[in-house]
Design a binder for these strands. Structure first.
Lengths: 218, 218, 218, 218
DNA sequence: TATGAATGAGAGTTCATTCAT
DNA sequence: CATGAATGAACTCTCATTCAT
């Protein structure tokens, strides 16, 4: 069969105001449901119900379940990446930039833990096939941006040069991720971390993750 | 109703020598297949074929697919945890212990990347339901062991005290994980990292992850 | 409940000049699409796109997909049947009439192979249920007209009497159909039969199909 | 996903005695159900129920619905083709051979009208794409065999040479088909043709279809 | 132990049809 | 007349699990 798809309402419309309200609703519902039951653990019906729309409408806006996940990712990562770019474009040293990124990520968690949950828990899920759509690319984009920050810091003499920028970036992002996972999972601050918990974690994570990158005589 | 269960020999037998050869084969096959296609992306049939045994035999040794995954985890983490414990019991400072753990993890990756892949990519997959079997517990066990190492280091004055041990441990483990992911995914050292690549990454990851935890005047 | 239907102008209007242009477009598009993908293999959306009209407009002019197909049939067969009637009303012997019918059918194929394709390939598709709309009736009407031609020929002594008129008609129509199918499918004259091919086939089919019906001493 | 298929129990097993009983049952049920409701009008569930097996078993033996239809075709046509070959290998003139083929086809109809129904009504259903599996090939094989018969008859001087063998074969097969359709549909001999009806039709169809191919002076 | 045929609930996807604008 | 977003029933296909041998 394999007939050519139509798919009129493309990815993200140029004019954000033009994005259909229901498409938004579905996307938001997907975040909640994925966060709650996991990608494999939920049915399209769950998303539709959560969004308060008819079953078929999900397929009106998204080609299939996979693309829905991709879209969720794309949207979330886009926000994250834009923040990174904004931070990088702003004032401050590379170390401050990296710290700002960490804080931003942890801030998001405070406001939208579910979104973070999806981002964190489903990232590398994609099997071997590189067929990964935007997902991986976006993830890599984030990593590269961070690596670039590290490189700048190294060039500026703020950060130690004996660590590959990618490794440095991965270390920071990894520390970030696993601390988030720990919070998500309830290992840090209990099932519902208070604002103070998050604040405390935030400070310490930055400390722990960045300390090692600073040029320091020991 | 309480009649003797026939599925007696299912779990790992006390006497490892007594473990049926085919059970091993299935377990190994599961690691490979899970690593390749992901837990949800593979069928029991795939595992059976890979193991070279009949379909139904998988169900002779494992109650269901979930339990198979749990067993894989259990086995892998057991190795990891035992290594951590051995390291902790050995000589050296806490910092050296942590470094040794990192090196060990990266060593495993060099010898059995697939096993690591499963461990890494499927860890937090389990949804909200706390029904998580041994999987999460084992993951937490590892985290706690590391946190304990950090705590000891803090008590001994080697490691900075202004970071929660769990956060410190999570940061190290996270850096470890994401660097592994980066390698698995091909962002570090290309699709097939050479031994030297791995060696280089190993050194730098340890540096990056631990540096920040050391008490240092800046 | 008996309120005036709004879908008044659905069927073919009495005054052909009054038929909306878009209705025509849809009907033509349907012929092409049905021919290309088959009735079950295409969606209303395909027809609409092919016709260059909006999705919902199809439902403005046709009650449902079935009725659209029926309309296509009705239109095509109507042409065919009118031609048969015209031929029958004209001069010549019964044998000449039958030959003319065959030639006409093959001529249509030359000009509008797609229309023929639909007519041929979807005719008997309708399952057991006698609920068949105009489709079958129209098909039967054609068969009966031909049978009538045969009967006349028999009464006039031109055609052999030992063959049931319906069987005779079916044989001619069948020969016609399968030769058309063979051309459609590419077994006669290749994928794109030339005009000469069609001409040759035309002559021979008439010969083959009619020869046996002639009263001839052997 | 598109994972490689396994499909252990291949098409038709070499040793017919080895063909699983249930596979047979499904195939037979498919013939009945397809005949009754048409390919598109029935669900796999119908076939399974009719066969008295579980839903999933259909997919154990057949890749999908399409392949099931193909298998039905293959089996039926195979019988037909083998009969043609047997007839051709036997004694008699080409004309007698062709007549024998017609009679055979009509005989099958008497014994297994449903099978014929499927064969006839679903033949050319396949859309444009040449992706047609065995279906078309088998149909063409039959046509070619008949054309070969015609050619032999022409060489032997029994049949007129001014008709392309393929056209001649198509004409016979077409006459056959449409007369069968007429019976299937109820236009010849009513909804349930008696044995005598069939016998009468048989004789006349042969007469009508072949008469024209004989070399005869007129 | 070992096998693989058999089962059937479950979920993704399609698409005819409706309806508010 | 015209549009296309919205609806949801229907159906195919998958695959974990069972069970007779």
């Amino acid at each position: 069969m394999n007939r050519p798809r139509r798919r009129a309402p493309a990815r993200a419309p140029a004019d954000p105001a033009a994005e259909p309200e229901k498409r938004r609703a579905i996307l938001h519902a997907a975040v909640r449901v994925f966060a709650d039951k996991g990608y494999h653990g939920c049915r399209i019906a769950d998303v539709a119900r959560q969004a308060g729309v008819a079953y078929g409408l999900v397929y009106h806006y998204f080609k299939n379940k996979d693309e829905l996940l991709e879209s969720v990712f794309a949207e979330q990562w886009t926000i994250f990446i834009q923040a990174i770019q904004a931070i990088r474009a702003g004032p401050g040293t590379a170390a401050e930039h990296l710290a700002a990124v960490c804080r931003f990520a942890l801030d998001i968690f405070r406001t939208a833990p579910q979104a973070v949950r999806v981002l964190i828990l489903e990232v590398a899920r994609t099997p071997n096939q590189l067929r990964a759509g935007s997902t991986r690319q976006t993830f890599e984009a984030a990593l590269r941006l961070l690596a670039d920050m590290v490189r700048r810091g190294q060039e500026a003499g703020e950060l130690r040069r004996d660590v590959d920028p990618v490794i440095g970036a991965a270390s920071v992002l990894g520390a970030l991720e696993l601390n988030l996972t720990a919070m998500v999972v309830g290992l840090l601050g209990g099932p519902a971390p208070s604002e103070d918990d998050v604040e405390r974690v935030k400070r310490q994570v930055v400390e722990a993750a960045l300390g090692g990158l600073l040029v320091a005589r020991r």
